Simulated scan of single mutants.
Amino acid sequence: MFILGLTGSIGMGKSATAEMFRTLGIPVHDADATVHQLMGPKGRATAKINQVFPGCLAENGAVDRQKLGAQVLGDDVALKKLEAILHPMVRGEERKFLRICQLQRRKIVVLDIPLLFETKGEKRCDAVCVVSATKAIQKRRVLARSGMTQQKFNVILKKQMPDVQKRRRADYIIFSGAGFRVARNQVKKIVQEIQG
């Protein structure tokens, strides 16, 4: 089974690209979606996070990402505590996903991990695909998100490896700034190459 790591900095179009792999029938494990699940109303990480970061729950019992963000953004010690709770759980879910795909005799699977290089996740992959776009496109996409500010964007960028370094370390690069059709063709080409 070929494990393709999919990554890209914020606003580069990684989620849309992951969807293109899914459309081709490739199973995708989404680390971000797993985090959302773990921090949901009945999520496995919710109580533990609220214990370490009191007052971060929403009315529905899920972790309120805005409240949690206010406690961890820009605070490395707090962020490390949060990662110590979430990362092992996310890895556990990833292992479960890979086991299921192995049993289903899947030829290719995708691990969609935003901080793939930053967490040394590339070591668990056979190849890495980086989704990239120009800085102008990235900035426009990110600042269009609800609740996003230039300051928050800067903090997030500081946590992420620069796009140019990611591209240098990639086996495949998908440029998402030229529209969906171009990106879809790049995804198809990658899948064909791996299958071939």
Rank of each mutant, 00 (worst) to 15 (best):
residue 11 G to S: 00
residue 39 M to D: 03
residue 170 A to F: 08
residue 134 T to C: 04
residue 21 F to N: 06
residue 191 V to N: 03
residue 190 I to V: 03
residue 177 G to S: 11
residue 190 I to L: 08
residue 163 D to H: 13
residue 130 V to N: 07
residue 80 K to Q: 08
residue 58 A to S: 09
residue 22 R to S: 06
residue 2 F to Y: 15
residue 44 R to E: 15
residue 149 T to M: 07
residue 33 A to M: 13
residue 88 P to F: 04
residue 151 Q to M: 13
residue 164 V to K: 13
residue 120 K to V: 11
residue 169 R to G: 08
residue 129 C to K: 01
residue 193 E to H: 15
residue 124 R to F: 10
residue 61 G to A: 04
residue 30 D to I: 00
residue 141 R to Y: 05
residue 90 V to R: 13
residue 186 Q to K: 15
residue 132 S to I: 10
residue 38 L to I: 01
residue 68 L to V: 02
residue 101 C to P: 06
residue 2 F to A: 06
residue 18 A to I: 14
residue 150 Q to W: 14
residue 53 F to V: 08
residue 145 R to T: 00
residue 52 V to A: 10
residue 85 I to Y: 02
residue 72 V to A: 02
residue 9 S to Q: 00
residue 10 I to M: 11
residue 143 L to W: 06
residue 194 I to V: 11
residue 1 M to D: 03
residue 64 D to R: 00
residue 54 P to I: 00
residue 106 R to C: 11
residue 86 L to E: 09
residue 41 P to A: 04
residue 5 G to F: 04
residue 167 R to T: 10
residue 46 T to Q: 08
residue 72 V to L: 05
residue 119 T to A: 13
residue 11 G to Y: 00
residue 160 Q to P: 00
residue 193 E to F: 13
residue 150 Q to Y: 13
residue 176 S to D: 07
residue 167 R to P: 04
residue 70 A to Q: 08
residue 147 G to V: 03
residue 28 V to F: 02
residue 116 L to K: 02
residue 101 C to D: 01
residue 157 L to E: 00
residue 62 A to F: 02
residue 146 S to D: 11
residue 144 A to N: 12
residue 107 K to G: 01
residue 101 C to W: 02
residue 133 A to G: 12
residue 152 K to N: 09
residue 138 Q to C: 06
residue 85 I to W: 01
residue 174 I to H: 09
residue 166 K to W: 04
residue 152 K to G: 05
residue 117 F to V: 08
residue 64 D to I: 02
residue 61 G to C: 04
residue 18 A to M: 14
residue 190 I to N: 04
residue 61 G to R: 01
residue 77 V to M: 09
residue 195 Q to V: 09
residue 33 A to E: 15
residue 78 A to L: 06
residue 58 A to N: 02
residue 183 A to I: 06
residue 130 V to Q: 04
residue 173 I to T: 12
residue 10 I to D: 05
residue 173 I to D: 03
residue 156 I to F: 01
residue 113 I to S: 05
residue 35 V to P: 04
residue 107 K to S: 05
residue 189 K to D: 15
residue 72 V to K: 02
residue 29 H to V: 14
residue 7 T to R: 00
residue 124 R to W: 10
residue 14 K to H: 07
residue 36 H to P: 06
residue 165 Q to Y: 15
residue 23 T to Y: 14
residue 142 V to E: 09
residue 125 C to P: 02
residue 186 Q to T: 15
residue 83 E to R: 10
residue 79 L to S: 01
residue 193 E to Q: 15
residue 61 G to D: 03
residue 123 K to V: 09
residue 171 D to I: 07
residue 21 F to C: 05
residue 193 E to T: 15
residue 18 A to H: 14
residue 93 E to M: 11
residue 66 Q to W: 11
residue 137 I to E: 12
residue 132 S to Q: 10
residue 158 K to D: 05
residue 26 I to D: 15
residue 131 V to Q: 01
residue 119 T to V: 12
residue 36 H to W: 12
residue 177 G to F: 06
residue 3 I to E: 05
residue 107 K to P: 00
